[in-house]
Design a protein around this nucleic acid. Structure first.
Lengths: 344, 344
DNA sequence: CTGAAAGCGCTAACAC
DNA sequence: GTGTTAGCGCTTTCAG
């Protein structure tokens, strides 16, 4: 008793973490029994188990996962790479990824690449070093060095939020081009004739814009639609600025397709501030179906992407792989839907 | 050449990661030289360095950080615990934490505790296992088991977004009680006499509400102000629902203090939908000064917390500790300001 | 059910 | 400037 508390105080003052051997000594057992008590309690006799757990509790011991992971080569860690934490666009995906992994005993680690290829490579290196059980990429990996490292590492990889004919490994996404094209067709069918675009600075947003333009040409509209390029990350302020700019530059605009709901909210507020009736004088279509979209006044028409499904699917792909199962359908297009509400 | 590519293919097909020894063999040097080439290139002769790096490049080799970290006991990793990724309240903090750490070669790992003490303990365990160089907590740690483990691990800890007389280690925060009291005094001074509260479900929000109530009593207002408790996470929809509920339950409300800007946006939209003039008929004060607050119409009056400073300070505390420096001022109250705009 | 030995992949410490 | 040896803390494997 006194010996223990003495040990504890000494240890704390040194800021030295305990090891299984310390715990073993204090509990009068071998290191192996400590390890088993923590990882396979059913394989240890109740008496020893109680002794060990009591010492663990008293000392606040937490085993060193680097050592365990090194030996067992299972980190119980999944890494996700996001362009940004600021935009709420990926929240649903992250949320469900986290939940699903957590339910299976995996921890999620999030890294921010900042829409920048060299930062992404550095981040990827830091991630691969930790030998996670899987890596979830937001968007597809373009850098040749990154692809090579990912391939060489043998770590399961899921690319998301996009499609490519040449995925590194597994893929759960949708066609950004198609989204743009569908949004354009939707506006045409609703009777709008002079759409403009407010488009984020990232590559996926630009492919959506390209799809929109392509469809506009197919429909026989003028070759170049007015576009406002908003710097990443997409903000409400950019949306307001974007509409002001478009209105000043082009005449007769009757609809705006925004590459995020936050931009769309900015457009809505700017329109209201200018006394433009939505959707009579200006239609607005957003993207993301963020939490607030349905609660706006008027409610926002937007492109919905099932982020929850992306996250769940990615998590299951990785868990299945980690447990040695084969993935039946490692490439899936989950599509999207246009949620028709009041703004378009 | 053929030998290399043969090796490469073989290796890939086995999905077996390379080790420093593989690279050493392929480059015709010792494992130590590979390690040095990667970590201290200046200590290796240019000729060998080039040889090694070429093999590393060809193979896509990334060293195993668990092994390195185990040996050198520096993980170059900092972990942060957030209640939720959904609310945008902590984004500024995370953003600056990430940036500052990144600039110093540390990686940030984010875990989500979900406003739940037992989840928080499990997450903490997973984090301590990885022996990060520091842990940033959002809010203060209450669980005795968690405190003990943190203390025993010897890992530098920074608690944030709150104050406590008994921090585990370092602290950078502000008084939630004071925020509530100041918001109340502010409204009183602006001539409002019948305020209500919309308050998130987490503990910090409730302490803000308590501070508000305390000040209301000091000012001689009625004992119990009307309160709407919004479930976490705070959403725009909760804000709308909250105002509707308050208006139905209490009469004469002329101001609302919300525990997040997102709730405040909901209140604003609900007020506009009901034709209530803001701030003439209803004043609104938010919290967070999120990106959109200044761009709303009318612009939102809100309590600003310098999240960037919290993140930077926390990062520097941890980096300094990791490099063995003592922290001069390990507990700091960064305060808050009320940003006076158009809604109150 | 429990323990002893060996080794995961890397790098600190020490030779040369 | 380069190589050799040893060991970080844990868990797999094998013996008792």
């Amino acid at each position: 008793m006194t010996e223990w508390s003495g040990f504890l105080v000494h240890n704390l003052s040194m800021s030295q973490a305990f090891t299984v051997h310390d715990i073993a000594r204090l509990a009068g057992v071998s290191a192996m029994t400590v390890s088993r008590a923590l990882n396979h309690p059913e394989r240890v006799s109740p008496a020893l188990l109680a002794q060990v757990l009591e010492v663990v509790r008293r000392t606040g011991f937490v085993p060193n996962g680097m050592a365990g992971g090194l030996r067992s080569s299972r980190a119980r860690l999944v890494a996700a790479v996001l362009p940004t934490l600021v935009g709420p666009v990926f929240q649903e995906t992250i949320q469900s990824l986290n939940q699903t992994l957590d339910a299976h005993g995996y921890q999620l680690m999030i890294g921010q690449s900042g829409y920048n290829e060299s930062r992404e490579d550095a981040l990827l290196d830091a991630i691969i070093r930790r030998r996670p059980d899987g890596i979830v990429l937001t968007g597809i990996m373009h850098s040749a060095a990154g692809r090579r490292q990912l391939l060489a590492s043998g770590i399961p990889v899921v690319e998301t939020w996009d499609l490519t004919p040449t995925p590194i490994d597994m893929l759960v996404g949708f066609s950004n081009e198609e989204i743009g094209a569908s949004a354009c067709a939707y506006l045409q069918q609703r009777g709008y004739r002079r759409p403009a675009l407010i488009c984020g600075g990232d590559e996926r947003a630009q492919r959506r814009a390209a799809g929109f333009q392509r469809m506009a040409r197919t429909l026989g509209w003028e070759a170049e639609l007015p576009v406002y390029l908003a710097p990443a990350p997409a903000t409400l302020a950019s949306g307001r600025a974007g509409l002001s700019d478009l209105l000043a530059r082009a005449s007769g605009i009757d609809a705006v397709f925004c590459s995020s709901d936050m931009l769309a909210l900015g457009v809505l507020i700017e329109a209201q501030a200018r006394g433009l009736a939505v959707p009579q004088q200006l239609a607005i279509v957003g993207l993301g179906d963020l939490e607030f979209a349905a609660s706006l006044q008027p409610a926002l028409t937007t492109v919905r992407i099932d982020g929850t499904r992306i996250g769940q699917t990615a998590a299951h792909y990785i868990i299945d792989r980690a447990e040695g199962h084969a993935i039946a359908q490692p490439i899936v297009d989950i599509g999207f839907t246009i949620v028709e509400r009041a703004t378009a």
